[in-house]
C-alpha cells in the first residue's frame, strides 16, 4: 500500500466519521438522514477498497 493510498484512506475514514456523526446527532429530517446513509455506503466500500 502506497503512502498516497494511506492518506486517501485516512481522509475517507474522517469523512465517514463526520457523516455518521451528522446523521446520528445533527440531521433532523429523514430525507437528510437517507442522504447521509447513501454517502456512508460508498465510503465504507472505499475504506475497505472494494470495487
Amino acid at each position: 500500500m502506497t503512502f498516497t493510498t494511506i492518506i486517501y484512506l485516512a481522509i475517507a475514514v474522517m469523512v465517514f466519521a463526520s457523516v455518521l456523526y451528522n446523521m446520528l446527532f445533527k440531521e433532523t429530517k429523514v430525507v437528510d438522514k437517507i442522504s447521509c446513509a447513501m454517502i456512508l455506503v460508498c465510503l465504507i466500500l472505499r475504506i475497505f477498497m472494494i470495487k
Partner: peptide
C-alpha cells in the same frame, strides 16, 4: 427509530454491494 432503520438499510446495502464487488474482484 428512523435513524436506526436507515442505518440498518445502509448496512444491508453495503453488505450486498460489497459482497458483489468482492466476488467479482
Amino acid at each position: 427509530i428512523s435513524t436506526c432503520i436507515i442505518l440498518a438499510i445502509a448496512i444491508v446495502c453495503t453488505v450486498i454491494a460489497g459482497t458483489s464487488f468482492y466476488n467479482k474482484r
